[in-house]
Nucleic acid binder design. Structure first.
Lengths: 198, 198
DNA sequence: TTGTGGCGTGGCACTCGGTGCCACTAGCGT
DNA sequence: ACGCTAGTGGCACCGAGTGCCACGCCACAA
């Protein structure tokens, strides 16, 4: 193994980060998000309050794993799509792929999403995180359609596909099907202009 | 003037509320939202910090006028729509109607929306306010389609029409056309399943 | 072995948003 | 004149987040 010693520092940092994340999710699940203080999470993770905020800029951020990595991955998936595929289909496929978790991680994902979608403070915070996703999607649409990312169609596609993804998460949480199926169902409705509404 | 005396109490309350709102919008416009403290807004409005938080639960709430009234009005407009009209058309019409401001108020609306759409803290806060709108729209769609408001189509229509409205506000802010036109353009794209994307 | 420099950490003090509590005052009806 | 009510200001408090400093640990060089 190369540099096993030098890795230890990084590993330790990642380990504490994971401990904080686990402790936070645990506490936020057993009680309301707002009633849990940062001190309590820090105590449960065995670190100081100050260190908690060195690992996570916000109490809310402890709920989102490494979300930035997901955004980057989504960007790569979109960049790799073929131009033959319809734009909406490429976005749907990318959303499905980036949310393709191994079965063992699904309970964790459920809890995360339940918190984000139901706790008001987290729901508010999500808007800021999702803004990055919107920008990535809008740039992809702009690339495909040849217009600016800030113009109507790219922005609308970005926001409404995210609406589809959010709705899919809602129905996934309420039921017991697969997330991929729910995503496809929502995207089909959207791409078809809501056929069931005449 | 009729009842000038008895009205004075209510009028005074509404007047201070309006003063706070004006002072807040003024300060948030001239500087960043986050750098303006509640104390400064209170001082500018000639009231105490404590009183500020009696009129507005949150610093962010001072930016939104009487938003609850708008939600109620939207609900009434949706309830009054004819069943002959396609669902999306009725929602579009309601959005257009509820955002039909007199020309003199447009600069104010522009400033409000610019803040809400660009300042991260306000963008996050907006999610909580818009959740009420989503619920009202979802219930309307549920009424029209005969399914539960929490099911896929009502929720997706609610979230994606709000996405359309948000996008319309973005393009309206960037350009110099009418808000109604931008709303119609966005809703047309959405209802047509994004025809320009093949 | 002995520096020495970097990095993660803990503790402290501070700002600011938001809340509960109490006391004061002005207007109103009796 | 009396009490009632509603709006207000002041105060103390909590919790999120930040800047600062000092400590300890580990790698690396002499």
């Amino acid at each position: 193994m190369i540099g096993a010693v030098t890795e230890s520092a990084v590993d330790a940092r990642e380990a504490t980060r994971a401990r904080i994340e686990a402790a936070a999710l645990d506490l936020f699940t057993s009680r309301d998000f707002e009633t849990v203080t940062a001190d309590e999470v820090a105590d449960a993770a065995g670190i100081s309050r100050r260190t908690f905020f060195r690992h996570f800029a916000t109490k809310a951020d402890a709920v989102w794993g490494d979300f930035h990595a997901h955004v980057v991955r989504l960007e790569e998936l979109l960049a790799a799509t073929s131009d033959d595929q319809p734009v909406l289909a490429s976005i749907c496929a990318a959303y499905v792929e980036v949310n393709d978790y191994p079965g063992a991680d699904l309970p964790l994902l459920r809890e995360r999403m339940r918190l984000i979608l139901t706790e008001p403070a987290l729901q508010a915070h999500s808007q800021v995180r999702y803004a990055d996703v919107d920008q990535v999607v809008a740039e992809h649409v702009a690339r495909r359609t040849g217009c600016r990312p800030e113009s109507l169609v790219p922005r609308l596609v970005a926001l409404s596909t995210r609406a589809a993804a959010t709705t899919a998460f809602e129905t996934w949480l309420a039921g017991d099907g697969s997330l991929a199926d729910d995503l496809h169902a929502a995207f089909d409705q959207l791409a078809g202009g809501f056929p069931t509404l005449r």
